[in-house]
Design a binder for these strands. Structure first.
Lengths: 223, 223
DNA sequence: GTCTATATGGCGATAGAC
DNA sequence: GTCTATCGCCATATAGAC
């Protein structure tokens, strides 16, 4: 029957990269299923998504989803694990670069807002899941080769070691993440109330927000 | 059943039983259903909740839920509308008090963190729903007598009119809300990574956060 | 590997006795 | 108003032809 769910995403993306085959026709069936599932799960969550919907999105029959992934639960875990860990790789790259701590913070804000703008539904997807099934999150994080918890801790100690603030650095990190993520997860409400439901205006607001958040954070950590 | 060895403890038991009756037994069936639905929907969301689960929580049969509320959709809307609007009444009260703008901001932070600490799952519930069905949110908001959008706008103009900041005041409001809400909606992840899954330590962190956020916000708006 | 057809169970909702 | 029993549908999952 099946193959390991762990190596799928790595194998798939490696294959794409090696062959530079990113168009639809050259994707394997497994990749088509995975990509479709990712779109649907991120939009509707585990409970809201339907296997039939994913099959339609992938342009094939429902039975094939079970042939490749055995169950909805399996397919979801593959998508979530991959999506979750990929969101931390960017942070890792920023933290290991050879610049000062303050510059790292600034680079992080730029990278992170860009990342969310390119994947606007991902923060809501992750937050949803860490509340729906915290136990799954725990096992997933410690199984992951990327070790997201290590990256979060690294980010924290980076703030701490450089005396960027006299405060508990966790307050800094959490405030920063909250300021960055909130306008995306509360978008429908904020866009309606504060921007007359004007999508373009809201996108401009999000772009200009990079500098705003940078200034806010710098004000915190400068005594 | 009440058992006792003397009449004093009997009286005490009876008093407890009567009080319990006042709290529990006097609730109408409709109230029992509503309260149970509220607990389940807030924990699991519309998609994750089951009518059977709500009936069990309310201590009655599934059919009664439909007798009083006709459909799951109806019951959910009643719960959501009520929960959503109640979250804005606190803000309204704060804004209409007779204190300076800066004091209002400080009072808001205190009130809001207390409110969330007493209802820790509500922010996640609301954010979930405004993304799941934004259209329902819109009609609900404009039907509501409390008019949450007016309150949000009032909060915004309060920041603006008093020149609390040269920035677009929407950045201030959104940053503030993000800083306040994020530690609650991302709690399972943050508590695990940053607090060794120590619940008490995390609660202390949340309590001390009131002063931290106050200081952060005051630093923004003071030039 | 991919399809059609079907099994199996659970869910929201209703009928009808009391 | 409240219950038991059940309907009808839809979801996940499997069987089996090709």
């Amino acid at each position: 029957m099946i193959k390991s769910k762990n190596c799928f995403s790595f194998v798939a993306s490696l294959t794409r990269w090696l062959n530079q085959k990113d168009n639809m026709m050259d994707k394997t069936t497994e990749e088509k299923i995975y990509d479709a599932a990712r779109r649907i799960f991120i939009l509707k969550g585990m409970d809201g998504a339907r296997m039939q919907e994913i099959a339609d999105e992938a342009g094939m029959n429902k039975a094939l989803l079970h042939y490749y992934f055995r169950s909805k639960e399996n397919l979801f875990k593959a998508v979530f694990k991959d999506t979750f860990t990929k969101f931390f790789i960017k942070v890792k790259d920023t933290l290991f670069s050879d610049i000062s701590a303050k510059e790292k913070l600034i680079a992080f804000i730029d990278n992170y807002i860009n990342l969310i703008q390119a994947n606007p539904y991902v923060p809501q997807f992750i937050i949803n899941e860490i509340n729906r099934d915290p136990q799954m999150l725990k096992t997933m994080m410690f199984e992951s080769e990327i070790e997201p918890q290590k990256i979060l801790e690294l980010f924290l100690s980076e703030v701490q070691r450089n005396n960027l603030s006299k405060l508990d650095p966790r307050h800094i990190v959490i405030s920063l993440l909250g300021m960055l993520i909130f306008p995306f997860i509360a978008r429908p409400l904020l866009q309606m109330v504060y921007f007359n439901d004007d999508q373009d205006a809201y996108n401009r607001f999000l772009s200009e927000r990079k500098e705003i958040v940078k200034n806010m954070i710098l004000k915190f950590i400068e005594e």
